[in-house]
Design a protein around this nucleic acid. Structure first.
Lengths: 362, 362
DNA sequence: CTGAAAGCGCTAACAA
DNA sequence: TTGTTAGCGCTTTCAG
């Protein structure tokens, strides 16, 4: 174990990193040069074969491929990277990896990326624009092939455009990326919210309050807009309560609202967290659902139909969202030759109303 | 945009990757050489300063640091990597990133890693040992600083030991890594299961069935062992039902079990998924909880106390688990000089019984 | 304690 | 179509 090299190591005090014990040539992964020697060609021929260059005689190519297979050669990403080539790695930035929705996105992204032999670098931005930009820059510097991002940037914050302009492939999903000319995969939040609102109105509700928080987040504001527009088109007055980011706030709102004469008879909850808060707060104060208060929530979640009562929701599929996004990104990465004629693609996915028990019988 | 280089590009047909348009020297990140020039030292002095080498006069060091700051110099990871140094990246392999528990682990790991300026490469193994080994090897080849892993390998599958032996820092968490001599952070599943069982017995239950699936997974088998041992120490016969991996199986088990004369009066569910299945199946068949059947579940989850009835659980903290694991890994990475005297560390975290309503009044 | 030179594995440029 | 050469930015080695 401790070879003569350890003498040298004693003198060093590298506290940040360590090195593997230097391997002998034969222990190390084979290089392009060894492949070339075995195939009886020059190194460039091997390089060309690896990078699917066209100008190669099939015979030569197969000779090279034989040598590669025999040696079990694998490209050295570090060296490629140093030559300015992008590595087989994609980046993923989401606001919060522990959120069920984004976690499922991350899982799907990683799965598909792996199938295409890409690795996945992840980061939570914790909804902090500064962190988001920092992480994206780090990723770009690392020569990632591309980036998938659920951006928390304000609409006027164009800081990530420079990366895109530098030729770094970016696909924004769930929320658009400030600056616009980026490939985007979104959910039709507005239409989903309209459908939810319509559903409540169909059940005879006239006083409906829309409850949520973080109204400056794109998805929330879209849902809110859908709610308002649907209410107004029915001649109803849209009520909102948009500071219910925690259970306490929800509890006190329920407590002070329920006794009111003109209290709402139905609630449209803008995401699964508020749905949970409301369910709990209403239950605690023994407000029967849907008898005394109907409830519909945006975002379906695993346990929605185990709740009491089972929650009627507008469902959006994180798997589908992620799949479309990573597919699009990989396509961009592969098709990068024609970077000149870039025309951003926008995909919008639908939602699905899942009727359960919390709005009464259908 | 289309400079004279595009002529060359036309001939190439690289379908896998693309290159950034070649930047001019001044657009590119500053190199160690430029720092050296500005600080009036040799490149090696800069390199030594960067790697916190001791043999540097403070004066020289601060001169170098000044130059680094002025230029905004950042180390080029690709070049370091090519020299065999590990990069500031850690790997994380879990069975399933979309699982709430592991998602929270991933989030915590990434957050702490980021604070220490490490990036995080993730992979789901999908519980497939082959995939797990493949991903771990890829990560090791990429010169990651270390690896955090929730291993799905069987106890006799020592394939990852070779990585560890090659000097790659690995910390196993949630489940031990086959082979043994690895740093490990675990939860005391056995004690948690005993506590749950004890809780049911305290409520007067004598016929208790332990329900779950995947009994060959470490955590499950530990919980099972805890259940059995606690039952036996009370002179009770431990009943088990260990093929309830989906809702259908759960439904039919409930249906055929409830009418039985000597049916269990309480269920210990081995994880949050079975808890969900049971809650739903029992509710569907109008079995009142806890009146006709008491239920306790291992794994707390976000909505456990919004269920009907609120579920009594044995809680383990994914945040704490992840924090301890990444802290340990970073410590190892930093302390790698003394690789000779490696003594594996084992940390065991406790669980907490959260009494709610599903086992009756306390 | 510091510096100059060599070269990690790969690919762009140029030559044949 | 194929080969040769020169370096990418860094760290090791060895010489001051």
């Amino acid at each position: 174990m401790a070879d003569n090299r350890s003498l040298t190591l004693k003198v060093r005090h590298d506290v940040s990193y360590h090195r593997l014990p230097m391997k002998k040539r034969e222990d190390r992964a084979p290089t392009i040069r060894e492949v070339a020697r075995l195939a009886n060609v020059g190194v460039m021929t091997v390089s060309r074969a690896l990078n699917s260059h066209l100008s190669l005689r099939p015979a030569t190519r197969s000779r090279v491929e034989g040598a590669i297979a025999k040696l079990g050669y694998q490209q050295n990403e570090a060296a490629r990277m140093m030559r300015g080539r992008r590595t087989k790695t994609i980046g993923l930035i989401v606001p919060d990896l522990s959120d069920q929705f984004f976690a499922t996105c991350a899982h799907t992204v990683q799965q598909i990326a792996r199938e295409q032999r890409f690795m996945t670098l992840v980061a939570s931005s914790d909804r902090d624009p500064g962190l988001e930009v920092e992480q994206a820059r780090l990723m770009s510097n690392r020569m990632l092939a591309g980036l998938l991002i659920v951006s928390s940037l304000r609409a006027d914050d164009h800081r990530l455009q420079s990366l895109r302009d530098a030729g770094f492939s970016i696909v924004a999903f769930d929320r658009p990326l400030a600056g616009g000319n980026t490939d985007t995969v979104l959910v039709d939040n507005r239409a989903g919210a309209k459908e939810a609102t319509q559903h409540l109105i169909d059940h005879g509700h006239r006083r409906i309050t829309c409850v949520g928080y973080d109204e400056d987040v794109y998805t929330v504001s879209e849902r809110l807009a859908g709610f308002k527009s649907e209410m107004m088109s029915h001649g109803l007055k849209p009520q909102t309560k948009l500071d219910m980011g925690n259970l306490e706030a929800t509890r006190s709102w329920v407590k002070e609202t329920m006794p009111l004469k003109d209290r709402p008879t139905a609630i449209f909850s803008l995401n699964h967290r508020t749905s949970g808060f409301l369910l709990r707060a209403l239950f605690e104060q023994q407000v029967q659902i849907p008898k005394r208060m109907a409830l519909i929530g945006f975002d379906d979640f695993e346990l929605a139909d185990l709740m009491f009562p089972a929650l009627t929701t507008v469902s959006q599929s994180p798997v589908e969202l992620a799949r479309r996004s990573i597919d699009l990104l990989l396509e961009r990465i592969r098709g990068m030759q024609s970077t000149a004629s870039f025309e951003p693609i926008k995909i919008v996915l639908g939602t699905r109303l899942i009727v359960r028990a919390s709005c009464g019988p259908h």
